[in-house]
Simulated scan of single mutants.
Amino acid sequence: MTSPDRHDRQRLMPGWDQSRIAGATAVVAGVGALGNEVAKNLGLLGFGRLILCDPDTVAAHNLSRTVLFDANDLGRPKAEAAARTLARVAPETAVEARVDGLVRGVGIGELADADVVLGCLDTRWARLQLLERCTMAGVPLVDGGTHPWGGEVRLRVDPAEPCYGCTLTPAERWGSEVPASCAELGDQPLPASILSSSLVAGWMAATAARQVLGVPLPWRFLSVDIAIGDTAPVLVDRDPECPHHSAIGEPARATVSRDDTVGELLGALPPRSEPLAWAEFPPPQECYRCHGVCEPGYGYREPTIECPHCGDWLRLRRTTRIREASSGTKLAELGIAPHEVLAVRSSDGEYSWLRLG
């Protein structure tokens, strides 16, 4: 007796190819309300692999807008809670949870290997960060946002196309990292419900599926407005000053991975090469008083640290120069993501790209 086919009705859809969906990898950045719905939709569609990236934990206000969380998940990492539920409701989909921010959670090489990336983020800075990394990777990006009675969906297939950054002023492109839900009304979060999340997520999942199936879409920006009953494309012009349009091409491949050490990475590069991390970390620092060495670790977030040798307080310096870390430190301990692509400055000042194994 053959096992029942979960997707037999989908296979009847004109132009549908379940084998292409099953072979596809999608990265979902942000697994709150919008990302929860997107991940659920992609899992039920039968996407072969999902990478869920989110540094936050489940809060009570998430529960009215997230089908992949319940009260037992309060305080747990969102990515892990969503992955656990997806294992039950979409058992054919392999799900990986990355409990970290985008830069430390998913490398540019992994983005390049994905078929599509879906952005479900709540700050302008995070959206632009995702946009830039997808641009460098050359991977299609489906970016979404919501407001109380609707939202937007933005598709960018080619780095040369107009993008979210093109809709912003230069000042807005360097805006705050504070979530819009917290910043725009002071201490009062913005109103939200499952209504707009479910509609925008449906459009995002459908857009991702069409991208994987190779069916082109005639629009790039879509406005969804429940209040007036309208969903319509929006035309956006390319801003020649927008910096988010340069792909990096095919980087060189390294023999080391994030599980190797700083010393092993430096040993695999030409002498005096300067590999750079994407996120700053606090390197070992000498105490001004006793000259002992303090090693706070990359995850240390405070601006000062107490010297373990004399008890004096030091103001920490931060850097992106991997060479400044201890040679025995693993690259993962510096917050470097799996299959990251690093910029490497040569001794003569030229830059190249290096993908970690």
Rank of each mutant, 00 (worst) to 15 (best):
P191S: 15
L185P: 08
A81S: 15
A26S: 13
E80V: 09
Y288I: 07
A227D: 12
T57I: 14
V178D: 13
G311D: 12
G105T: 03
H7I: 01
W219G: 01
T320C: 06
V27D: 01
P191Q: 13
E80N: 05
A206S: 07
P179Q: 09
P251I: 00
R315V: 13
G297E: 08
Q285H: 07
V341I: 14
L121D: 02
G30F: 04
Q211T: 15
E177F: 03
A29W: 03
R301T: 15
L314G: 13
W16T: 09
G299A: 15
S181L: 14
H7Q: 01
L354G: 00
L118V: 15
R301K: 09
E324P: 02
G32I: 01
V103E: 05
E264D: 13
Y164C: 09
S223Y: 04
C166I: 08
A171C: 03
L276G: 01
S198Y: 12
K40D: 07
A180Q: 14
C290S: 11
P284E: 10
R258K: 06
H245S: 04
D115F: 05
G105N: 05
R6H: 09
W16Y: 11
H339I: 04
A114W: 03
F221C: 00
L213P: 03
W174S: 14
R173K: 09
P303T: 12
A59P: 05
V293A: 13
G109W: 04
G151C: 05
S326T: 08
A22P: 09
G249D: 00
R11F: 02
I194M: 12
P296D: 12
